[in-house]
């Protein structure tokens, strides 16, 4: 149970990072921290007081829940794809604007 509270604590740190980061790369790193802490939350809920590996054996007492583990395999891949795409976009933003800070990119535009 302590592990769930600690994992949610890391999630809180991730949210705080998103709220005060001044450029794109720091927001992206905070987003990755939030995603990684959610993976830990799922793993903790799948093995709260049962910690036998879910492989077929003769006696099954307290096997861990296999469904969140399969879900997290997919979620890691999704988070990696999004990170790759945002990094590529930020390279292009740097070519065009010369800076990566949020204040200077989203500027006033008299259209």
């Amino acid at each position: 149970m302590i592990s769930v509270i600690l994992a949610l604590g890391i999630f809180i740190i991730g949210i705080y990072g998103v709220l005060i980061s001044k450029d794109i790369i720091k927001s992206l790193i905070s987003f990755n921290i939030m995603q990684a802490s959610l993976i830990m939350v799922y793993m903790d809920f799948s093995s709260l007081d049962k910690n036998q590996v879910p492989i077929y054996a003769e006696e099954m007492h307290k096997m861990a829940d296999p469904l969140p583990q399969a879900m997290m395999l997919t979620s890691i891949v999704i988070s990696a794809s999004i990170t790759a795409l945002v990094l590529m976009m930020s390279i292009k933003v740097f070519h065009y604007f010369g800076t990566l800070e949020w204040e200077k990119i989203i500027e006033r535009e008299e259209l």
Partner: peptide
Amino acid sequence: FFVNELSSNYYIFNSYTEVGSKNIV
């Protein structure tokens, strides 16, 4: 922190006969 074990029990007990793999994940 009460975890409902409905699908977890189904996976653990019926997975080897339905799917045929020993690794449930």
